[in-house]
Every structure is written in structure tokens, then in C-alpha cells.
Design a protein around this nucleic acid. Structure first.
Lengths: 190, 190, 190, 190
DNA sequence: TCCTAAGCGAGACGGTACGTCAAGTCTTCTG
DNA sequence: CAGAAGACTTGACGTACCGTCTCGCTTAGGA
């Protein structure tokens, strides 16, 4: 019988990736560095992952980075919920290791569109689900127009957040609130 | 009084960078490849640019990539103008070489935040200026609320577009129109 | 437990060095050229040798260049033996690849005195041993003065040969014989 | 009609070469370094010398390195004169800058036999002339055998000295004296 | 006196090689 | 047979000099 895959080695590599990205950025990550840091041979890495990007992908999913905002319970007040979501998300991004990971995700996406798109979809899914839920609920209580496109709104929210991460300039509360205001009421007069 | 900098060599390098990014992506670009392609010595490249990212930056600025949308004349109808802008911008991004350059810009930004932020600012400036202008005009003709934050709206537009480029999925007309609708009227009922 | 050093690669490099020196001279030898010629990567060369000079040194030692003269059997006639040694040595040096190697040794020595001195000592040792032996035997048979300094004589012989190699002008038989004559009888009258 | 060659620049280059060789050795000398050190443009160097070796050659000749031994006046005692010559020559070589220059000469010779041979001939000429003179005089006074080959002896002396310089181990007085003893009387018994 | 041809500094240019780094593959031995 | 250790080929990195080539500025003669 063959020797089974070493779970310990896998976790060490993923952890090493998270650490390496946090200090130095994705581009500076090296397979050799990862191997040394995780105390694993290069061959073991190559056996289990096809690319640096794939390791990052797995590391991100295991680490479920932007998951915390999801924990926010709905209050029944859509505007309040969205504001709270922005605050949680951008507080999360304010921590250096988290923004480094977010940027790494963006770098992978910009470089390897297919893998990147898959990763982004997985991450965005949570957010989109959460936001869509709130908007559906709000529609049922009449807070939102019947024809509002919940998914499009969720996409906008993700885009805004992603762009803020890219530039390393998380939204402050005032801007987040202004954004929620626009989303809900638009800018048209009257 | 030494021999003057060769303008031809510079342009050849920038052109080579644009070509290389267009087929292969930013990460695959190599200084050696650039040198060979531009028929220039490596030393000449290192003499004038501190990094691959800097070359891309200059190449982008000289190429004034997303400049075309700016040409759109204002019609006095804000919603129409914004819709037209989205169509133009996303038609631009639909061309493979343009989306490759846009993605390269994002990759640089994700990797070197400082340089990237500067480049993004330069690019966004045009868009922000154009959008802000329209919104100001619209405010004067009473189409827009007095307290609308033009710059924030412009940022959102840029973010949406950047995210679409990142994912390689330019907005189709229906989504663009829906987005303009939200911006103008929000999603709140009543 | 890792993969062991490739003996084949080593030998290929040393052989390439000998070939390269033979046609082009030591200064024209290039690590890159060696690597290409030996069909070995630069990295492998840098892994095992600290410098071009070290490679030459090892190549020389493995090739045991001026070894042939040593094969000469003693005949009991010191003058005859020395004459024979000179003829053998300078016949050896008359071959282009051998003089190229000898010159390379001199070039290294002139450039890196420490390494060069070590190499020279190794090479001279054989000659010195051989000459000293003959002189000792000759002393025992009364052919040589009791106070003759065998090592000094050997050094002179090496020096003469080295200088001839440097200038690329191996001694002809007449000069060699004249030199042996001086060594044995001096130039003083009576 | 045109501006004449700048004597100052020439001298500065030659002096820079001597200095550079003295600290760092011939191989470490670069044309660019020379130019900077001499405060002269590269072009000026290339205008007047075809190679690094040629500059060294001229620098050596102007500096007339091993000239001092020549100043020794003949005393009528051949053995004494030769001993004095060795002492002077090897005292000269004991100074670091002189041995560096001598080694540079050897390096050039080992590398570029034609130029090197010419330089060596020029240098050796003085020594050979001096030694030959003494031996001729000694022959006339009956100190030396009629058939002694003065030029061959002179060559041996040069070879010994050159080899000592190469190895960086100038002869001490005892060895020099032993060498003179061998030259004059040989090692044969009786 | 001023003209003009060369000398000169500065330094950009296309190259070649340097010595280093990491990528991804392979071989060997140990557990 | 998975895994560590690490040798191997490959190819790019950024640097140092090479020798050539403009530049614009002296700096003498000869007109």
C-alpha cells in the first residue's frame, strides 16, 4: 500500500503561502521559498499543485478571507445592513495581511484570467448571496423597487470593494455611507 | 554635451511593450524579450527605466488607452451621456489588445501599489473629469440633486469598469443601462 | 541522500576547458562558452568551481601535462639524462595544445598568485623530484660535487622551461645541451 | 593645423595604468576605470592605443622598471658583479608595485605572445647587454672559458628572475649566490 | 584675426559575458 | 512509494565593460 498524502505538508505549504504573501506580496513568492519555509521538498509542492496561482487559490479558500462580513445578522433595515457590511468589509481590508491577500487574488486574476475568474466567483458568491438575500427581503417588505436587479447591485458592491483593495485605499465610513445612499436613492433630482 | 538620448530607441521599447503585453500578458513580458523585439540593448532599457512596471506605465500614458470615450460630446441628457460612455468604454475593452493593457495596469497596481496608484490616478483623472463635468452640468439644469457627490459617482464608474476589465467580462448594454438607472434613481421603492 | 554529483558533467567541463585553451588561449575562455561546449548549464559550473582559474587548475592536474618526461629511465649518465629530459620536455611544449596549456598556467599564476603558486608547485614537484633523484644518484657515483644543491638546480631547470614556454620558444637541442654543459661545468676558465 | 595630441592626457593614462596594475593586478584593469582615473575620455584612449596590453607596454617602457640594476658599475670581478646584479634586481622586485608590474608583463606575454615577446625582448635587452658585457670582459681577463655563450647565460639569468617574479618569491641572497656559483663552476665533481 | 580641422570630455548605444536566482525535472536514499 | 534532499537544464535577472558613435567645446596653426 502506498504512503498516503501528508496532510501536514499540505497545510504547511498553504500557511507558508499566506505568510509569504502577507510580507512581500504575491509576485515575490517563490516555490523554493515556500518549500523552505514549509520545510517541504519542492517535489512535494509540484506533485500536488500545478502552479503558484493554484496554491494561492487553495490558500485563500481555506482561509475564507472575506467571510466575516457574512456573519452580520440581518436587521430588517436594508440601508443599515449595507452600511454595516461595508464597515465590516473595509475594516477587514484595513489589516495588512488581508489586503495583501486580496491584492494577491487580484494579481492572479489579472495574470491568469481563467483561474482568477473561478476564484473571484467563489469569493464573490458569498457576498452576492448575502447582498441578494437582504435585497430580496427588503423587496418583500416594500423597501425596494420591484424591478431592482439584486445581482447587479451585489456586483457593484463587490466591484467597489475590489477596486478599493486594488488601490489600497479602503473606503472610510462617510464614503461607504454615500455609496449606499446613491445605491438606494440615486442622484436624480426630485 | 554627450550624445543625446535616442528617441527612436525609446519609442521602439514602448511599442515592444505594448505588443508584448497584447500577446502573452504582462507577467510574461521580459526585459530581454523587449530588448530583442525593440532591437535595443538591455542596457539602454535599464538606463532609462527603473523597472518593467515603469515601462508599462510610460507605454500606457503614451498610448492614452481609454481616451476615446472622452471624445463623446455632451448632449445635455445625463443618462444618455453616461450610457454612451459605458458603451464606448466597454467597446474599447472588447478589443483584445486593450483588455490586455488594462489587465497589465491592474497587475502592476496589485504588485507595486505606489506606482500603480499613480498610474491609475492619471488614467482615472480623465474619466473622473468627464463624468464630473456632466454631472455638474446636469446639476445646473436641475437633472441632479444638489448634494450629489460627482467625484464619488465617477469613482464608482471607474471601479465598475476596472472590475469588468479584471474579469475580462465587459458590460453588455443591458447591464450598463441598468447600472446607469441605479446611479440615477437608486433602488429604493417609492 | 540527494542526487549525486554528475561525474560526466565534470569531465565534460574539464575537457571543454582544455579544448578552449588550446584554441584561443586562456583569456578568451568564457564560462558561457565552456557551458555550451560541454553541454552543461552555467549553474553546474558555478556550483562546483569558484572561478575560471580553478577549472583550469583541475583540468591541468587531471591532464598531468608535463608528465611524459618523467617516464625517462635513468641511464646512470647525468648529463645524458638531463639532455634527454630537456629534449622530451621541449618536444612536449612544441605541440600547440601543450604550449597553450602551459601559457594558461602562467597566465593564471600571473593573475592569481596564490592559486597559481599552488598549481606550479604541484607541477614542478614532479620535475624537481626527478631531477633531484638523478643528481643524488650522480652524487653517489661521484659524478657530482658533494655540496651541489639538487633542489636549486631543479628549480633552474623549471625556470628555464617555464620561461621558454612563456615566450613560446622551446629550446632547440643545441641550446639545451649548452645549458646542461653550463650546469655541470660552469663557465669559469680552468 | 589641428590641435595637437595632448601630452598631459597621455601621461595621465600611463600613470593611471601603473597605479591600477599596482593595486588590483593587470586583469582587473579596465579601460573605463583608466579613463575615469586619468580624467580622460574613453575615446581619447582608443584614439591612441589599440589595446590594454599596448598601454601597459608603453607604461612599462616609460617607467623603465628593471633599469636600476644596470647602474651597477663593473668591478672587474665577474662573480661579484653577478651577485650584485641579483641583489639589486630582487630588491627591486621585493617592492609590491614593481612585482605587480612585472607580473602584468608576464600576464600580457602569456596572453598575447607577439606583443609580449616584443616587450620582453626590450626589457631583457638591457639585462642581456649588461651581463654579456661583463662576461666578455671577464673572458678577456681570462676569468671565463673561451667558448662560454654569454647570451645563453644572460637568458638564464633573465629566466630565473622572471620565474621568481611570476611566483612572487624573489631570490634571497643565499640562493642568488648559489646560482652564481653554479653558473661559474657547475656541479660536476673534480 | 578669425577659420577650421582635429583633440577632447561626456556619455548614449548595441553587444557579450558576468555571477545569481528561480523554475520545473530528475535521481537517490530513508522511513 | 511518498517525501527530503539536492543536482540538473533552462532562461531571465541586473551589472560591468567592451569598442563605436555622436555631441558640443576647446585650441592650435594657416590664411
Amino acid at each position: 500500500m502506498p504512503r498516503p498524502r501528508s496532510e501536514k505538508a499540505q497545510q504547511a505549504v498553504l500557511a507558508a503561502m499566506r505568510r509569504a504573501v502577507a510580507d512581500g506580496g504575491y509576485e515575490a513568492v517563490t516555490i523554493e521559498g515556500l518549500a523552505a519555509e514549509a520545510d517541504v521538498s519542492k517535489q512535494t509542492i509540484y506533485r500536488w499543485w500545478p502552479s503558484k496561482a493554484a496554491i494561492l487559490g487553495e490558500a485563500l479558500l481555506e482561509g475564507e478571507i472575506p467571510g466575516e462580513p457574512l456573519e452580520l445578522p440581518p436587521t430588517g433595515d436594508l440601508a443599515g445592513d449595507l452600511r454595516a457590511w461595508f464597515r465590516a468589509a473595509h475594516a477587514h481590508l484595513a489589516r495588512p495581511e488581508n489586503i495583501a491577500l486580496a491584492r494577491a487574488l487580484i494579481a492572479v486574476t489579472a495574470t491568469d484570467p481563467d483561474l482568477g475568474a473561478a476564484l473571484n466567483r467563489r469569493f464573490a458568491r458569498q457576498t452576492v448571496a448575502w447582498v441578494s438575500d437582504r435585497i430580496e427581503s427588503a423587496r418583500e417588505t416594500g423597501q425596494v423597487r420591484a424591478d431592482a436587479d439584486a445581482a447587479a447591485i451585489a456586483d457593484q458592491i463587490v466591484a467597489i470593494t475590489s477596486y478599493a483593495a486594488l488601490l489600497g485605499r479602503p473606503l472610510d465610513d462617510a464614503h461607504a455611507d454615500a455609496f449606499v445612499e446613491v445605491l438606494l436613492h440615486g442622484i436624480a433630482a426630485g
